[in-house]
Amino acid sequence: MIKFNNIHLSYNGKEVIHNLSFEIKQGEKAAISGKSGSGKSSLFSMLLGFIEPGEGQITFDGVPVDAKSAWDIRKRTAYIDQDVSIGSGRIPDILDYVSGLKSNAHLDYTNKKFNDLLEYFELNSDLIGKNVEDLSGGERQRLAIVISVLLERNIFLLDEVTSALDIHLKKKVVDYFVRKEDWTCLVISHDPVWIDNPSVKVLKLEEREWKQ
C-alpha cells in the first residue's frame, strides 16, 4: 500500500535519511522510532508531498507520489503532526472549517458518532465551547484524534499523538486504532504502548529493520 524505495533526504547539505526502503501493507499497524533529527516526521511530509525526497520514490497504492497524486493521497489519509496543528480559535469554528472543505462534506460533528468519540477519549462535551488555545496538550491530541476519525479515512499518519497523555489514555488510543482491522496506521512514536504492542510492527530507523 505505502512503499518507500531507496529514499534519500538532506537538509542544508546534511543527509538525514540515507537509502531507506520499507513497505506498509493495508491493515497493518506500524510504528517508526528513531532518535531526534533522524527524519521520522519527514517521512510523513514526503508521503503527503510537503517535501520531496532528494532521491528515491514513494508509492501509494502503486502510484508514485507526485504533484498530481499528492492531492488525492491527502484526501485518503488522516494526518496529525507532532505539534497537533489543528488551527487556532474557537473549536466549533475549526470543526465548521474542516467540515466545510469539499472533500470532508460528510463530516458531521453534531451527530452521535462525534459524541461517542468524545466520550471514548474522555473529552468533556463542554470542550466544544472553548478555544483551541485553552486546551491542554492532552486534550488537543485527543481532539485531533477525534477529528481524524471523523474524516472517515482508513489510513492514519500519526506523529507522536500520545506523547501528552497518561498511560490509561495512551492505552485507550492505541487499542482504538489497533482493533480496527481495515485501518492502516503508520505511527511515529517512542512510546512503549505502541512499540510493545504485539499488533504493531516497529521500524527503528537506526537499525533499518522491522521488529514484530
Binding site: W71, R74, D81, S85, I86, G87, L101, K102, S103
Partner: peptide, 13 residues
C-alpha cells in the same frame, strides 16, 4: 506553516 499544511492534509484544494 504547520496549520496551513494540516489543512492541505485534510484534503483541501
Amino acid at each position: 506553516t504547520k496549520n496551513y499544511l494540516y489543512v492541505l492534509s485534510l484534503g483541501a484544494s
